[in-house]
Every structure is written in C-alpha cells, then in structure tokens.
Amino acid sequence: MEVDKGKGEAEETRKVAEADRDTVTLKSSDGKLFEVSKEAAARLSTVLAGMIAGGSIDDNGTDLKQIGSEALENVVDYCNKHANSIPSAALISSSISFNTAPFKEPEEWERKFVDRLSHDALFDLVEAANFLGMERLLDVTCHKISEMMKGKSPDQIREVFNIKNDYTKEELEEIRQELAWAFYDD
C-alpha cells in the first residue's frame, strides 16, 4: 500500500518535472554531493517530496546544512536499498507481509542496514530521518535504539547511553514507590 502510494506520488512528481533528470543531488553540511533517485526521495521523505513538488530542488546540490556527509550517505544508501527491495515486497508473493501504513517490523535488509552503524552514526541517522521526515527510516532506527534498551535496567540504560542521573536518592525512592506496579522484585 505504501508502495502504491509512493508510486502514485512519484508519477505526479514526474508529471510536474517531466523534462528534469530522475535524480536529485543533495549536499551535506561539509559540501559533499550525493545523488538519489527522485522517486525514492519523494516516496521516503516528506520534506524532500515537498521540496521536489515545490520546485526548490537545486540541480547543483540541494543544501542540507544540518546533515553531515556520513549521515547523508546513510540516508542515500537507505533510499537506494529501499528502491531495490521493492520487488520482494510485491503483493504476489506467498509471504503475507502486510505492508500497511503503521509500523511493521524491520525487514532483514533494514536490520542489517542499521546493525552495521556505529552508535554515533545511528543517532546521526535518527536526527537526519527526523529532519527529513523519513518515517520509515525513523521507525527502523528508533526500533534499533529500543532494542538496545530492551531488557535493561534503568542503571544499565544510563550506562549504555551515558545518561547523567540527575535525580537525588530520595527522588528515586519516591518515583520507585509511585511506580511500584511497574517494578517487579528488583
């Protein structure tokens, strides 16, 4: 369904800029250029779709000052991989993957895609996805972060993410009592 919608949007976009190239060039904060297919960009990112439709795409590289080259490379990589993975998600397959609008579990390639990222790159990518309005990428990356948190005690979460504990002991005790129903013998 997402696929259908994406194709529809892409077709509309094509009509708007029939003569144009079918890729867009994006420029990272440090000036590197990346090419991504217009169709994928419009389908996956609401912000880019808006820019393409609004004609604010610069042929010499649309400036994305807030995204570093590493993160942008990952974004572009994701767009390309996503484009390639479409046939497997086609409806005529025996798998009953419900390609619905709400969240569905990351697919195998998406898992691999986020697994190979470093901590730093992952969080960069979350921000970039949030910034570009790429819902699916945001889902996948956030899901990855949640897996890093899953099954960990608050102390461990603090440790993993270097979060500073700004509670006092008394406060912690108070909150633990308030939320006693969520803590099970620990």
Binding site: H119, C142, S146, P154, F161, I163, L179
Partner: peptide, 29 residues
C-alpha cells in the same frame, strides 16, 4: 547521545519497548 534527541523521537523509541520497561525508564533521569 540519546539525550540530544527530541522528546518526540525519544517517545518513539520508548514506544517500541514493552510498556513495563518504558515505564521503568522514568528513573533514568
């Protein structure tokens, strides 16, 4: 890293956790 994320993104992350774990994160900070 995680504290630099906006609340909305953080809530998105917590949404993937089981509810009891999500509630327990209230004592993280």
């Amino acid at each position: 890293w995680i504290s630099a994320l906006p609340d909305a993104v953080l809530q998105h992350v917590l949404g993937f956790l089981p509810a009891d774990e999500a509630v327990r994160t209230s004592i993280v900070a």
